[in-house]
Computed example of a mutant assay.
Amino acid sequence: MKEKKKGISENRVCRWWNIATIGIIVLVLTFVGAYTGYIDPCFHYHAPLTNLFYPLYSQRYQNNGIAKHFDYDAMIVGTSMTENFKTSEVDALFGCHAVKTSFSGAYMRELADQMQTAYDTGHNVKMIISTLDGYMLEVKDAESYNPIYTYPTYLYDKNVFNDVAYLLNKNIFLNMAIDGVYDRADGTPQTTSFDDYSFWSTPDMGGKDVLLSEYEWQNYTYAKAWNEESLPENWYKQAENVLQSNLIPLIEQHPETEFYLFIPPYSIYDWDSTRESGSIAMRIAKQQAIIEALLPYENVRLFSFYDAYDIVTNANNYRDTAHYKANVNSVILQWMAEGKHQLTQKNYEDYLANITRFYASYDYKKLHG
């Protein structure tokens, strides 16, 4: 009889132990979820809280929240070619209040979604600055995101149930909500400045030796001639599809917004690689496709800086063959504000002819001397 009572007692202890354990787990998870939601380091629910400092460093986790909850009337949204822009310069030049939401390696769908989020959340966006990198027009699936990046889709959609992936995310809780955000009771700025967000440029980086190191010269031949190769029959349709599926609907639906769009100036070393592969004609054709698709819209200000030859041919302006340093970003903003290097229906054909002559006849040998 005593053994039976002992067994019943042990069962009760086990049951209460299980209940207590479950209760503790529920309490811990509730605390983690509540704390993450309250601090909200990705701005999924609200803007930064007063007297807390929020570091900005994770583009695909934080940009969507910035677009939803920050105060602004202008937006920088583009590839890594926009990372060194300073919103303080944008504000001064264009008389606006801008945020920067760059996406390194972005496909055009990602940029379009970011712009759409700004409109969907009631922002009166009077100006958008964005890049038009040629590689984005080569994407076969116009609505795809770059597969090399991980996207926290639970932060992007409107499904509240999958927010658990955010609220109970160990890395977000420990690294962003606890270690990242901290008290600033003195009332100093509540986030990393948008001048500093995603900014990577330093004066001493890059240069000729660095750019040359990206090449493999063993099989390099200077005798390879530039040639007019035939373009794929469906290329223009593909480029048009990417634009029509992403950017152009936003331009048409929001005439109140001026879209400052620019084709970024990759370096002469990048053009050298293009020349060696025999695809200069293709590259210029990409520009023509972009230009002819976008120029008809009155609220588009379209720029290309490939005729800024002093910048393109100066290796000291670049970190690598494509990425230019902050001094170039500043000049680009100044030129856009002044209307320099702007493409129009009247001048774009001359522009294409000029850059074709320059890059087809450039003495690339001197890059390696």
Score class of each variant (00 low, 15 high):
M1S: 14
K2N: 08
E3F: 06
K5H: 14
I8T: 04
R12N: 14
R15E: 10
W16K: 03
T21G: 11
G23T: 07
L27Q: 03
L29H: 04
L29D: 02
T30P: 04
G33Q: 01
T36Q: 09
T36S: 14
G37Q: 07
D40Q: 04
F43R: 08
H46Q: 10
L52V: 02
R60K: 15
Q62R: 10
N63Y: 09
K68A: 12
H69S: 02
H69V: 01
H69T: 02
D71G: 01
D73Q: 04
D73T: 05
D73C: 03
M81E: 10
T82A: 06
K86W: 10
K86N: 11
S88E: 09
S88G: 07
S88K: 05
E89I: 11
D91A: 02
C96D: 08
V99N: 04
T101K: 03
T101D: 01
S104N: 05
S104V: 12
M108T: 03
R109A: 12
A112I: 00
A118L: 01
Y119H: 07
G122T: 00
H123M: 09
H123L: 10
I129V: 15
G134Q: 11
G134I: 11
L137I: 06
V139M: 13
S144E: 10
N146T: 08
T150E: 14
T153R: 01
Y154P: 00
K158Y: 05
N159S: 12
V160R: 03
N162V: 00
N162L: 03
L168W: 15
N171H: 06
L174K: 13
D179E: 09
G180H: 04
G180N: 07
R184E: 13
G187Y: 08
P189N: 07
F199K: 09
S201V: 09
P203I: 11
M205R: 00
K208E: 13
D209G: 07
L212I: 15
E216K: 07
E216S: 06
W217S: 07
Y220E: 12
N227R: 14
E228L: 01
E229H: 14
S230L: 12
N234A: 13
W235A: 12
W235D: 05
K237W: 01
Q238H: 11
E240L: 09
E240R: 08
L243A: 13
Q244F: 02
N246H: 07
L247W: 03
L250N: 07
H254L: 00
Y260N: 12
I263T: 08
T274W: 01
S279P: 00
S279V: 04
I284C: 04
I284A: 03
A285Q: 10
Q287M: 15
E292D: 11
L294M: 01
L294K: 02
L295R: 06
P296C: 03
Y297I: 06
F303D: 03
F305C: 11
F305S: 12
D307A: 05
N316L: 03
R319Y: 14
D320E: 13
D320S: 08
A322V: 13
Y324S: 02
K325C: 05
S330D: 13
V331C: 03
V331G: 00
I332F: 12
K340N: 15
K346V: 00
Y348G: 13
E349H: 11
E349T: 15
D350S: 14
A353F: 00
Y359R: 08
D363R: 09
K366E: 06
L367V: 09
H368L: 13
G369F: 08
